[in-house]
């Protein structure tokens, strides 16, 4: 009996690439913020390593053998896919084991999964990235792509908020962007909820940066990623400024076990976040985001 599975939009090759775990080696571990580290990996198999590509915002299933897998977006530059960064805060059973990884340790990767940030949708206009806390990690590949292709956009604006200076990811890189990349047309504004004496940037939630960014709603495409409550307020203010719902893109987080729409954990209404997301357009999910415990 041959099966009719034409209902699925995912090709078999894509799925097999994600179903089989690949062994990878930890090359470098960098502390980014409180309890948060970036793990730089290379895939062990040279053929797989050279063939691996990812798009900004896509997810890998990051596995520690004998412990488990977690879904984590790639936080490094998509133009350099041979070295893959995953930025992870230790909060649970698996992530606390990951925290103990050292260079030379072996892990598994499956992926990449999901719908990426549509960087090209912002071409010709302004790209506005609004990131909160750990949400900067999934957004960073999109920023790298915009920096490499700066001439394709009128303005590139990066707004980042965090709870405090010790929670701000990629601090050295953000300092460099704020000081030097503004000469190349990358406008970076940072803020923390509660500042200390050493903090040279703004104080307040990330939406307080909106006036400083002088957003032109007619030509702006927004990528926002962070805690759901932060994104909700960011979207509310952006809609208030006149940015159309169809030009606001969000990254949604859900529990995931498979990455290929068969474990059921990541459902949000009709969507599987692992494949239909994690990046959604606000007009696709705004109504669903408003429903408690959906």
């Amino acid at each position: 009996m041959s099966l009719d599975v034409s209902a699925s939009a995912v090709s078999e090759a894509e799925i097999l690439a994600g179903v089989a775990p690949r062994v990878a080696t930890v090359r470098r571990v960098v502390q980014e913020a409180y309890e948060t580290y970036t793990y730089w990996l290379t895939l062990d198999d040279p053929v797989v390593r050279r063939a691996y590509r990812f798009e900004p915002g896509q997810i890998n299933m990051f596995g520690v053998v004998g412990v488990g897998e977690i879904p984590i977006s790639v936080s490094s530059d998509p133009a350099r896919p041979m070295r893959l960064a995953h930025t992870i805060r230790a909060t649970g059973r698996v992530t606390n084991v990951i925290k103990g990884l050292r260079p030379g340790d072996r892990v598994t990767l499956r992926g990449p999964f999901g719908r990426p940030w549509p960087v090209s949708a912002a071409r010709g206009g302004n790209l506005l990235v609004v990131a909160g806390g750990l949400g900067l990690a999934p957004a960073r590949p999109a920023i790298y792509r915009a920096i490499r292709d700066r001439g394709a956009f009128r303005r590139v604006i990066v707004l980042v908020g965090a709870r405090g200076p010790e929670h701000m990811l990629f601090r050295h890189e953000l300092d460099a962007w704020a000081q030097w990349l503004r000469f190349r047309g990358i406008e970076t504004h940072l803020t923390v909820d509660i500042a200390d004496d050493t903090w040279p940037y703004g104080e307040g939630v990330v939406t307080t940066l909106f006036p400083r960014a002088s957003i032109d709603p007619r030509v702006t495409t927004v990528f926002t990623c962070g805690p759901e409550i932060m994104m909700r307020f960011a979207v509310r203010d952006l809609l208030g400024l006149g940015v159309p719902a169809r030009r606001i893109w969000l990254s949604i987080e859900r529990n995931m076990h498979c990455g290929v729409k068969l474990c059921g954990h990541c459902q949000l209404g009709p969507y599987f976040v692992c494949a239909d997301g994690p990046i959604f357009r606000y007009d696709e999910i705004g109504e669903l985001m408003g429903v408690a415990e959906l």
């Binding site: 053998v65 004998g66 488990g68 076990h257 068969l262 474990c263």
Partner: peptide, 26 residues
């Protein structure tokens, strides 16, 4: 109903691990 968990287990001497899929429930 198809929902499932993926669960890792490990042998006592730590040299062998299995990744198992189990029925799960929403």
């Amino acid at each position: 109903c198809f929902c499932n968990d993926v669960v890792d287990g490990i042998s006592l001497d730590g040299t062998e691990a299995t990744r198992t899929r189990e029925w799960a429930s929403c």
